[in-house]
Amino acid sequence: MSLSGKPFDEKRDFIRMKIETPLEATLTGDGGTYKGICRELSGGGMQLELDDELAQDSEWEINIASNHGHSPQLRAVVKVVRVLPQGERFATGMQIIEVID
Rank of each mutant, 00 (worst) to 15 (best):
A76N: 05
E24Q: 10
E24W: 08
N63L: 13
G69L: 06
F14V: 00
S4I: 15
V99E: 13
E40T: 01
N67H: 01
R16C: 05
V99Q: 13
H70F: 14
P72F: 09
I96F: 06
E59R: 12
D101Q: 13
P7V: 10
I19W: 06
G31E: 12
A55L: 13
S58A: 11
P72W: 05
G44T: 02
L50K: 04
L74N: 07
K11N: 02
K11P: 02
M17Y: 12
D101L: 08
G45L: 00
K11W: 03
D51Y: 04
I97L: 14
H68F: 14
K6Y: 07
L27M: 13
E20G: 15
G45S: 01
M1V: 15
R12I: 00
A76T: 08
N67L: 09
S71I: 14
H68K: 11
E53W: 03
S2Q: 11
D13K: 03
D30H: 14
D30Y: 01
K79Y: 11
S42N: 01
I97T: 13
L27C: 04
I19Y: 03
G69D: 11
G87P: 07
L48E: 00
L3Q: 07
D9M: 09
I62G: 01
T21R: 10
G29Y: 04
I62K: 01
Q47D: 06
G44P: 00
L23A: 04
D51N: 10
D13F: 00
L54S: 09
E49K: 12
P85C: 01
A65R: 10
G5W: 07
I64C: 07
T33H: 11
I100K: 14
E59G: 01
Q73L: 12
D52R: 09
D13Q: 04
R75S: 10
M1N: 06
R82W: 07
A25W: 05
S2W: 13
G44A: 02
L74E: 02
I37R: 14
V81S: 05
D57L: 06
A55C: 08
T28S: 06
E24K: 10
D13Y: 02
R89I: 04
P22E: 15
H70Y: 09
I19H: 05
V99W: 00
S2M: 03
K79P: 01
G5P: 00
R82V: 12
D57E: 12
G87W: 05
G31N: 02
